[in-house]
Design a protein around this nucleic acid. Structure first.
Lengths: 365, 365
DNA sequence: CTGAAAGCGCTTACAG
DNA sequence: CTGAAAGCGCTTACAG
């Protein structure tokens, strides 16, 4: 076997290996019994320390903590889970085609889970499959999940939420609107954010504005369209019905919707697409029709996906703090170390912001 | 509490609930003891059936299978794991900024895991962090992972592979080149694929071709550049050194590299970027310089990311079967039901293909 | 505040 | 081919 290079990389800590040997575990991982023996207490008392029971004398706790620290002991999650009848796994359940969104949420969830002893298990699913609900139930019950994070659009599914309550599984919904009064949620104010976009376009001087809405099954689609039109109305600008078209949050639907809007006369001087994918479709349609962006058409999207900066010109859009949302969601599910970090609120709101780039400017004349 | 809508969605199977009641488990999940009692055998024999031991009489097995089926019993992974000293979790370990790649791999891994009783735990990490190796070891040892899938670039890290062998954790590497003779791997022939791209551009008539390579820490960067230049050489076209620039697989580096290449005289008539992110950077640079794609500049990328079709004109690029790669990787880690599905090969190769779109055409004159 | 016993749901030797 | 005992590493009542 070839010699392995080790330079420039920290390997295992040799001290901990030595200590394990010193404690005569010879290679074996330490158990609660080892800690109990070394600290001269019963395993039950060690268990109390692990589980932060208040009924342990400070001196005893300190002694046990020292041994745990020294040995580098960590309780076995499977054994603990078996005794607790509950695992130390958090599930991420989603039916969402946006990869960047998924990965950002995952990163956020893992931010919260780091050091907590919990791990993240992913479970994509298909709302249209007849095994949708049973599949999720099997997953949760079999793994005895400690809790789950639900992403839109299935976070909006009341039947799912009801099923989770039935099997007594705690959950956090990520959504753009409050769905009930009891479910813990991370809420994005999509409505306010699209209002900001509307105000921005109006302030630039746009009056003939096209709107590409999302599919009506998504609550966000409704929120975004409503926020946009309401803010414009408040400034005295009305979007006529023929300037509002319904897309599917996909690139292709964006192309088709933009082609429809750009065929209207007078042509819109700006288009707000309710996500970046559809905004990219507007670029495509404008290119085909030889309508330069932003000179003859301003475009605003929603998501601030990587696409937004890759497009030329770069896309003015709305940024969601997705990673934060993942972190906040997971924080609601796990017990925290520092009591001041506890997030007991049922609903946590996050703020979105308009990011102005190169795809928007005042209309020509 | 409001009545839950149930129309149009299949809920839990009422039969199984009834059966659980009939078996007098009153709400409690069935255990191996219940199955043993109902089938009139010892729990050990049930265990043998669960673990597919050959030493069970066919009639006994059939009887037990019937009860398992009827009750809807599934063994508790935590209890099983505790007894086995090993979990039923597969880890996905990566340090990769490409969200679409991650999600596609995840989907593929889950394809393979479906119905196997294994679940996927994700573990992004940072190769440059001093806790990189210790962090991965802790993760694997604490969770007693059944195996892990490693994605590039950390799949190429020999120190990591060595550490995994030390802790006796099986792993599968996803890579673009064979890294040793023993590690199980999923191999992409990046070299062959970029050769295909080179042949394509040469056949179109391009002779002044620029190459934006990847960062040298990535093996794929080397493979892609080598495959491209070698294939061109074989057709009598040499890329002069000033027409090869090194990018970082990022959009910004693509912009910078393209600006450098497009400042050369005579200007290249085609640029091959070693990934789509950098190809998008070429679009940006060309736009700034008012060089129309594909009329005055053909562009070819690598990845077939979503970006490829969102860009205008759509990007000619190389498609990797990422989801398949994930599925194949996971298949090497888990025991399979049907013996004919077993993948015992150490190395499995997948094939990449050039996808011709609108960003490439013959050079002008 | 601390401990000895029993149990979580499974498996591994060891018998027969 | 099948089973009774002991154990995986933890926790929950129950005592003291």
């Amino acid at each position: 076997m070839p010699k392995t290079r080790t330079s420039g990389t920290r390997g295992t800590t040799p001290e901990s290996a030595a200590l394990k040997g010193a404690a005569s575990l010879n290679g074996r991982r330490a158990t609660i019994n080892d800690i109990a023996r070394l600290a001269n207490v019963s395993k039950k008392t060690v268990s109390r320390v692990i589980n932060q029971s208040p009924f342990v004398k400070d001196a005893t706790r300190a002694k046990i903590d020292a041994v745990i620290q020294q040995i580098g002991y960590a309780p076995d999650p499977q054994a603990r889970g078996l005794a607790f009848r509950r695992s130390f796994l958090i599930g991420l359940i989603y039916d969402n085609p946006n990869a960047q969104y998924i990965v950002n949420i995952q990163d956020g969830v893992l931010d919260a889970l780091r050091g907590s002893g919990f791990e993240l298990v992913v479970h994509p699913c298909d709302r249209l499959n007849e095994d949708f609900l049973p599949g999720i139930r099997r997953f949760i019950e079999r793994q005895k999940l400690h809790g789950v994070v639900l992403l839109p659009p299935i976070s909006e599914d009341q039947t799912l939420a009801q099923a989770l309550r039935e099997i007594d599984c705690q959950y956090v919904r990520v959504a753009s609107v409050r769905l009930d009064n009891t479910s813990r949620s991370i809420l994005c104010n999509d409505r306010e954010a699209t209002g900001e976009a509307a105000n921005y376009l109006e302030a630039l001087g746009h009056r003939r504005i096209g709107l590409i809405a999302g599919p009506p099954q998504y609550r966000s689609a409704h929120e975004r369209a409503l926020g946009f039109t309401t803010a414009l109305e408040a400034r005295g600008v009305t979007i006529p019905p023929e300037m509002i078209v319904e897309g599917a949050y996909t690139f292709d639907s964006g192309v088709a919707c933009a082609e429809a809007l750009l065929a209207r006369r007078p042509r819109p001087t700006a288009i707000f697409a309710c996500n970046d994918e559809m905004a990219a479709g507007v670029y495509k349609a404008a290119y085909r029709l030889k309508i330069p962006i932003p000179e003859e058409l301003s475009v605003v999207g929603f998501d601030d996906s990587p696409l937004a900066t890759r497009l030329t010109p770069s896309l003015t859009t709305i940024r969601m703090p997705i990673r934060d949302m993942g972190r906040l969601a997971a924080s609601k599910l796990i017990p925290v170390k520092a009591p001041d970090e506890v997030d007991t609120a049922v609903v946590t709101r996050v703020t979105l912001h308009l990011i102005v780039r190169d795809s928007s400017q005042p209309p020509k004349s």
